[in-house]
Design a protein around this nucleic acid. Structure first.
Lengths: 247, 247
DNA sequence: CGTCGGATTGAATGCTGTCAATTCCGGTGG
DNA sequence: CCACCGGAATTGACAGCATTCAATCCGACG
């Protein structure tokens, strides 16, 4: 299950591919040097649990590569994914020692980590860091509220379409673009994981993928890759008024 | 519809009943004096819209009294309430000029406001303010994620029970207590508003209130007040594992 | 080639939504 | 004081979408 993580070379921040989107985005060179001296990398295999809900969590970090998810469970085992972590996303919470959600690596994942107490000190001294973290948290809050709309009011078909749109937008945003026309979307999630994200069952997810395929809105290339002939047509299936910028 | 708001006396911060829970909770006296010189109050009648989604919003503020809600809508009019604002809650978003959600006063509501640009300047200069806002935003994010669990996975009955528990906890927290034993809960929301919060229809809400009443878990005193004979029994209906601290 | 996990498909059930009628309740005006 | 009004809430009957349970299919891998 948990294969030993290979030691990861300490990459300098200036070469970091996700720096523009990460918590350190606004930091000056001198601050960056300070971060650099404290940071360390951790790697996780696909499927490996990064933190269990209720467990102490002594670090915070940023996703460098891969994908991870935050999940919550009810007494009888019903699960809901409450967050999907992509490169640039922040992991953990300053000021809280105990994790509220279980974090699992969906694909092989690398994290750029700091010890939590050290990071908290940095936050105090570095307004650029604190300000950026606030902005990111506010964005995540907006995104979470958009998900509430999806989970509370959207049909199964609209939920699937919305997820694809969100993933396409996030994927494009990392390289500073906007999705348009014919696009491909990687889907490293199982049907069950998708169901847990969308508040559905895996069977319903599968059926709706089938329906979208029948309606020529998507083409499936295996179970984990989707080609969208017309991104605009897919957006029209989401039920949203204007386009949203969910995460 | 929008009756003229009566001019509100400028109350000094030291007497403010919700200061311990508000964004200014950590501020020192000198900072507080600065806030005091910039703040102004606004009042809204029950039902009045505070801001429309898409409208420019040139202020931020804190709820002093009353209740307001954040709502989002789909093209065909389906609505989802994505936030419930109670005394102490922060309204608006530094760094964003355009409101993403429509804010409506559920009951008569008073706000302690700052001009947005002035508040942004204060945030830069006042780490106590910025840190507190970050902590509050992180709490709201956790709460939003708990709502995602509710909306994605809980049954109608569990949703109603959860809402009552949440309101009871918030009400108790304002006076520094924990709900226990026999308690009363004020419900200033219509069945439709409750439905929009819980991702249900007003008929389902009504039926589930009836079912909880039949099962002796609640007693209805009119439509807008609920008495809970045993708070613990109600919590057991929520489906949660441990108790949550949702907002 | 067989196995195993994931994905798809099918049939039946059920929870919640929809549409519609009725009751309740608070406020108003005679 | 009471009759009336209108919005909110309740209740009923029925439909539908998503779930549940179960069988089959697919593809990667040993």
């Amino acid at each position: 299950m948990a294969a030993p993580a290979p030691p990861l070379a300490q990459q300098p921040c200036e070469n970091c591919s996700i720096r523009a989107h990460a918590v350190c985005a606004r930091c000056q060179d001198t601050q960056l040097a300070q971060l650099e001296s404290l940071k360390y990398c951790r790697s996780f295999d696909a499927g490996q649990v990064i933190v269990w809900a209720g467990e102490r969590m002594e670090f915070v970090g940023t996703v460098l590569s891969g994908m991870a998810d935050l999940t919550q469970q009810l007494v009888d085992g019903r699960r809901q994914m409450v967050g999907l972590l992509l490169p640039g996303d922040f992991v953990g919470r300053p000021g809280r020692a105990v994790a509220r959600y279980t974090i699992t690596a969906t694909t092989a994942t690398t994290l750029c980590c700091f010890k939590r107490d050290q990071f908290e000190d940095l936050l105090q001294e570095t307004p650029d860091l604190a300000g950026r973290l606030l902005a990111m948290t506010l964005d995540e809050l907006d995104a979470a509220r958009d998900w509430m709309m999806l989970l509370g009011r959207k049909s199964a078909r609209e939920r699937i379409a919305s997820l694809l749109v969100i993933l396409a937008r996030r994927e494009a945003a990392l390289i500073g673009q906007k999705p348009e026309g014919r696009i491909g979307i990687e889907l490293p999630l199982t049907r069950e994981a998708i169901a847990d994200r969308l508040g559905l069952t895996l069977e319903t997810v599968s059926r709706q993928f089938g329906a979208l395929k029948t309606d020529r809105l998507i083409v499936l290339e295996g179970a984990r890759r989707v080609v969208v002939p017309s991104f605009a047509a897919l957006v029209a299936e989401c039920g949203d008024d204007a386009e949203e910028a969910l995460a």
